[in-house]
Simulated scan of single mutants.
Amino acid sequence: MNENLQTILNDSKPVLVDFFAEWCGPCKMQAPVLKEVKSEVGDKVRIIKIDVDRSPAIAQQYQISGVPTLILFRNGQPVWRQSGLASRKQLVDLLQQHV
Rank of each mutant, 00 (worst) to 15 (best):
M1W: 06
N2T: 10
E3A: 14
N4S: 14
T7C: 08
I8A: 13
L9Y: 09
L9M: 11
N10R: 12
D11F: 00
D11S: 15
S12N: 08
V15K: 00
V15T: 09
D18F: 01
D18K: 02
F20V: 11
A21Y: 05
E22I: 12
E22V: 13
E22W: 05
C24G: 07
C24F: 08
P26V: 07
P26I: 04
K28Q: 14
M29K: 10
M29Y: 02
Q30C: 01
Q30D: 02
P32G: 02
V33S: 04
V33C: 06
L34V: 01
K35T: 04
K38W: 00
E40N: 12
G42F: 04
D43R: 08
K44N: 12
K44Q: 13
V45M: 09
I48K: 04
I48V: 08
I48E: 00
K49Y: 02
I50H: 00
V52Q: 03
D53Q: 12
D53A: 10
S55R: 10
S55Y: 14
P56Q: 09
A59K: 06
Q60H: 03
Q60F: 03
Q61Y: 06
Y62M: 02
Q63H: 10
Q63K: 14
I64Y: 01
G66D: 03
V67H: 04
T69P: 06
L70M: 13
L72Y: 01
L72N: 03
F73L: 12
R74I: 15
N75C: 02
G76A: 10
G76D: 11
G76C: 08
P78C: 04
R81A: 13
R81Y: 07
Q82M: 05
S83W: 05
G84M: 13
G84E: 11
L85W: 04
A86C: 15
R88L: 05
R88S: 10
K89L: 11
Q90G: 10
L91M: 11
L91R: 03
D93Y: 00
L94N: 07
L94A: 08
Q96R: 13
Q96Y: 05
H98E: 13
H98G: 02
V99R: 12
